[in-house]
């Protein structure tokens, strides 16, 4: 009797498994490096549209890049969606990702298509976010200071010990900041500025988003961070305001790549198309993410910083994304600033 029951159970299970919808449309494994909410919304909507059983794993951008390298002999992910552009470019350079040329490319902003061109078609821009200051209105009011409007304002004595930025060794945001200043003023002047700014910095945090969070809680008055992160804190009810520096500022291009050796290549391509489409990009608002979308037809979220009011520099991603330049600038930063030494 027991044997019968066991056989029945196994047969039943087998039928359930064979009949499940996952088998009809296949699967997709996404490595997601945007915020959790956005990953979830994108995955759910894609699943609703296509019936593909999509599963996402959320990690940091650097972590995902390290993961791709570790897994390269036997990749487990199919598509890598989100996160700052430099690691995507590095992965492209190391052939960890593959080329894909969909028709939808022509609907994109030039900066997004430029990312595709730079990488030989291995990665593409999906959103853009500008660097700026996020300050805490309550702390500023309590100290009775006017908030900064330009990079130069940060050197004012009233902000001494009130500014937080990430450490460029660990954070792409901070490196982008330094590269922005170098492109704005030339290298010597930029480092002269950073050296003076150093006196006002209370902490170089390890992670890029940390200064923004500290500003939201009032642990610091000013954070140098991405403006869209400030927009998120603001929507959460924190008393913060974002400022785009008057001299001009740099930006990141959030990117997407298909992983080399993807087991579900066809589905990865369908997701790629979906993520570049207006329907896909419109979901950013529901995902509580306020970057500027890369499809020209996508309306930006009402919470997004207004890109038309931000003076963007012509950021040279090829030059400042290269490992050699990065190493050189970081070494100079170490040598000139001597972080950790008593001021």
């Amino acid at each position: 009797m027991r044997a019968f029951r066991a056989a029945g159970l196994i047969a039943g299970l087998t039928i359930t498994v064979l009949a499940s919808p996952a088998f009809a449309q296949g699967k997709l494994n996404m490595y997601c490096t945007a915020n959790e909410e956005w990953c979830k919304v994108m995955a759910n909507e894609f699943n609703k549209k296509t019936g593909i059983d999509i599963a996402f794993t959320r990690r940091g951008t650097g972590e995902t890049y390290a993961m791709l390298k570790a897994e390269k002999d036997n990749p487990k992910g199919d598509i890598w969606w989100g996160g700052t552009g430099d690691p995507h470019l590095q992965a492209a350079e190391e052939k960890l990702t593959v080329k894909y040329e969909p028709a939808i490319l022509k609907e994109l902003h030039p900066w997004a298509k430029a990312q595709w061109d730079r990488s030989g078609g291995r990665t593409v821009g999906i959103y853009m976010g500008a660097i700026g200051f996020v300050y805490n209105k309550e702390v500023a009011a309590k100290k009775g200071v006017t908030p900064p409007a330009c990079w130069a304002d940060l050197l004012k004595p009233e902000f001494k010990g009130e500014i937080q930025m990430p450490n460029p060794h660990s954070s792409g945001t901070a490196y982008t900041t330094i590269a922005t200043l170098v492109q704005l003023w030339g290298e010597d002047k930029a480092f002269e500025y950073l050296k003076q700014l150093h006196a006002s910095i209370n902490q170089y945090t390890k992670q890029g988003p940390a200064p923004g969070q500290a500003a939201a809680r009032g642990e610091t008055m000013i954070a140098i961070t991405f403006l869209h992160d400030g927009a998120m804190s603001k929507r959460r009810g924190f008393p913060v305001e974002g400022v785009a520096p008057c001299e001009g500022t740099g930006y990141e291009i959030g990117s997407m790549s298909i992983i080399d050796g993807a087991r579900n290549l066809a589905n990865a391509k369908r997701y790629y198309d979906f993520a570049l489409s207006v329907d896909g990009q419109r979901l950013a608002d529901a995902g509580e993410s306020y970057q500027a979308p890369s499809n020209r037809g996508t309306p930006p979220s009402p919470y997004s910083p207004d890109l038309s009011k931000i003076k963007l520099i012509d950021y040279d991603f090829a030059k400042y994304g290269s490992s050699a330049e990065r190493r050189r600038l970081l070494a100079r930063w170490d040598a000139e600033l001597k972080v950790g030494a008593p001021k």
Binding site: G60, G62, E63, Y65, A66, D86, Q90, P168, H169, S170, S171, G172, A174, Y175, Q203, Y204, K206, Q207, S323, R326, R327, L330, V339, G340
Partner: peptide
């Protein structure tokens, strides 16, 4: 704890982590 509270006090574990996944891999 170090990632949240270290300030500018660097310890090995944090350096190892960011040498693996930081801006300069």
């Amino acid at each position: 704890n170090p990632v949240i509270l270290a300030g500018n006090y660097d310890v090995l574990s944090v350096q190892i982590y960011f040498a693996l996944v930081g801006a300069q891999v």
